[in-house]
Structure formats: structure tokens, C-alpha cells
């Protein structure tokens, strides 16, 4: 059984193993600096489907299946499939689950869904409710633009602090035993809102939530930023990361060389026209499954803190002038 640490954190006494990781990305992500790390790069953004929404769902399903294939698990052996995405009623994940014959729990934490799923999956395993859990989260640039912003062919200017929704999906297979890096600690985040209402400035909307969860995590576990080989936020982008560093400094925590953001890793910010970096449910999931998990597996990282961040607005709430609540969930993954 797990052990509660402080107000928001918990340590897994039988740390779940991340036995496999898989991902699929879109052409633009496949043109970025992490291209060689990805399992499957789509030739076109429709992925052989008639609609972008179906393409997104197919990505989620295929990345999950790919994770299973890598370790020869059958869907029938999965106790839970946990997945989420950005679309209304998380249809992409729901529809993907049609193709995975396993009990399904749909999750929504906007772009924080990936760590939310890892955290919940680890709890299920450590609590003895499951032996094998499959988690996945993904996003698609065009479906997200349609739902949250403007039609793709609309001639609009994106502000310099806007972020680019990642097309991609990442999946992990969690098990109660076996080889691979382990999930040791989790910290569930609170919803934090410091009054940002510009849906183009998501990094700024999410940074306070990231700072809140990180500080709670350090306090609950008695650790400091220097105790981790890598501290990785999900999709704050350049603006959000700089803001996070400032917020943390104000509280006496220095995020230095070991801090990075998935949104700034996935694209070549100088060459690719993505402004402040990547975002979306797929951002942290493809960077973690593509690059970080491998480096943990090879022992190049020993202890990584992943804090995926989510902006919890809808297009309706934005039009009604509501501010954007943010959330961040932390998991700590260690190599063995």
C-alpha cells in the first residue's frame, strides 16, 4: 500500500514499473529535433482517415497497441486502460478504447492528462487493484485549433507567445513487476487561477499551477530541485517556463540547468514556426515516451520529475470571459 506524504503527495511502496513506452507523432513533430526518438511518424496529418478527429483517435489507439506489442501483452491481460485527450467529452480517447478490449477509465486534465494517468495507474497497481495498466494521452493540432481557436485556413496572426498544439500520442505500459524504470512518488495538483484570460497565453495561465504543485511536492517529500537529474514540465513553452522560474525563485527554489520544458524540446524553435513552443496532451506524452523513458531505461537519468500542466478552459468559457484555471500533476520516475 502507498504512503501519503504531506498534503498532496504519496510514495508508492511497491513502485509500478514502466515496462514499455510507445508513441506516434505528426509530420511536423517528425521534422523536429526529437525525430529519431519517435516510433512512428505519420506521413500526413489525416493518418489515412477521413477526418482529423478520427486521425487523433487512431493515433491514441495505435500508440497504445504499439506499447502492448513491444512487450507482447494481449489487450485481454490489461486490467485498466486510462486515457484522455483535449476534445469535448474526450471522444478521441473514448473512441480509441473501442479498439482496446480492457476496462477503460477516461481522464481529463487537459494537457496534464498524461501525468494524471500515470499517477492514477500507479495508484491502481500499488493499491492492489491492478497488475497491468495501459495509459495514453494524445492531441492533434488541427482538431484543437478547430475547437479552441480558428479554422485552419482562416488567415489569422498568432501572437509571438502563442503555442503550437502537438500532433502526437504517447502510451506507457505499467506493471506490478518486471524490468524498467519505476514510478516512485506522485503529487496531485490543485487548480490554481491567477486571472489570465487570454487563451493564446496558455503558458502564463498554467505556470502558477506548475509552481504550486512543484513547491508542494518539494515540501511534502523534503526534496529540493537539485535532488533530481531532470525536472521537466509538460507544455509551458518559453513564456511559461520563464514565468515558472521567476515564481519559483520568489519562493526560494532555483530551477537551473536541470530544468526543461517538453514544449521547448519537441520543436526547433528557431527553425519551426511554432512561436513559444509546443502544447497539448501529446506534448509531454511523446517527449516522455520518446526521449526521457529511453534515457531512464539506459540509466543516463536516475531520477526524473515530470510535471505535466493543463489549462482547464473551454471555448465557451473563453467567450464568456472566464479566466483560465491551471493544473499540474507530478510523478517521479527513477531508473533501477
Amino acid at each position: 500500500m502507498g504512503q501519503k506524504l504531506g498534503r498532496q503527495s504519496f510514495r508508492f511502496t511497491k513502485p509500478p514499473v514502466i515496462a514499455a513506452a510507445a508513441n506516434i507523432v505528426g509530420p511536423m513533430e517528425g521534422d523536429g529535433p526529437l525525430a529519431v526518438q519517435f516510433d512512428w511518424i505519420m506521413d500526413d496529418i489525416l493518418f489515412g482517415e477521413p477526418t482529423w478527429e478520427r486521425a487523433e483517435s487512431k493515433m491514441l489507439r495505435e500508440s497504445a497497441k504499439l506499447a502492448l506489442r513491444k512487450i507482447n501483452w494481449q489487450p485481454q491481460e490489461i486490467d485498466f486502460f486510462l486515457a484522455g485527450d483535449l476534445l469535448n467529452q474526450i471522444t478521441s480517447a473514448n473512441f480509441a478504447a473501442r479498439g482496446i478490449e480492457a476496462p477503460f477509465l477516461g481522464l481529463f486534465g487537459a494537457c496534464s492528462t498524461f501525468t494524471e494517468a500515470i499517477m492514477v495507474g500507479s495508484m491502481l497497481i500499488d493499491g492492489g487493484f491492478a497488475a497491468r495498466v495501459l495509459v495514453a494521452s494524445g492531441s492533434h493540432h488541427n482538431t484543437a485549433e478547430r475547437q479552441f481557436r480558428f479554422p485552419i485556413e482562416q488567415g489569422v496572426q498568432r501572437p509571438p507567445f502563442a503555442q503550437w498544439t502537438v500532433t502526437g500520442s504517447g502510451a506507457l505500459a505499467l506493471a506490478d513487476q518486471g524490468e524498467g524504470p519505476v514510478v516512485t512518488v506522485g503529487t496531485a495538483g490543485k487548480v490554481v487561477d491567477l486571472g489570465i484570460s487570454d487563451p493564446n497565453n496558455m503558458g502564463a495561465a498554467m505556470a502558477p499551477a506548475a509552481a504550486d504543485t512543484l513547491i508542494s511536492h518539494f515540501q511534502d517529500t523534503g526534496t529540493a530541485p537539485a535532488d533530481y537529474d531532470l525536472i521537466l514540465t509538460g507544455d509551458l513553452g518559453t513564456v511559461g517556463s520563464d514565468t515558472l522560474k521567476d515564481l519559483m525563485r520568489m519562493q526560494g527554489y532555483l530551477l537551473e540547468g536541470n530544468y526543461c520544458d517538453c514544449g521547448t524540446l519537441i520543436y526547433d524553435l528557431a527553425r519551426q514556426d511554432v512561436h513559444a513552443g509546443g502544447s497539448g496532451c501529446g506534448c509531454s506524452s511523446v517527449v516522455f515516451t520518446g526521449s526521457i523513458w529511453k534515457q531512464l531505461n539506459e540509466g543516463r537519468y536516475r531520477k526524473v520529475l515530470l510535471a505535466a500542466t493543463g489549462a482547464l478552459m473551454s471555448s465557451t468559457s473563453s467567450q464568456q470571459g472566464e479566466t483560465i484555471p491551471g493544473i499540474a500533476h507530478v510523478v517521479v520516475v527513477e531508473s533501477r
Binding site: F150, Q154, V156, Q157, S197, D198, N200
Partner: peptide, 11 residues
Amino acid sequence: VMDLTRASITP
């Protein structure tokens, strides 16, 4: 108008 006013001013 778009650059200097609030972000809620869309096309």
C-alpha cells in the same frame, strides 16, 4: 486595434 487592445478582439 488588434495589436494594441485586449486579446479578446478577434478578426
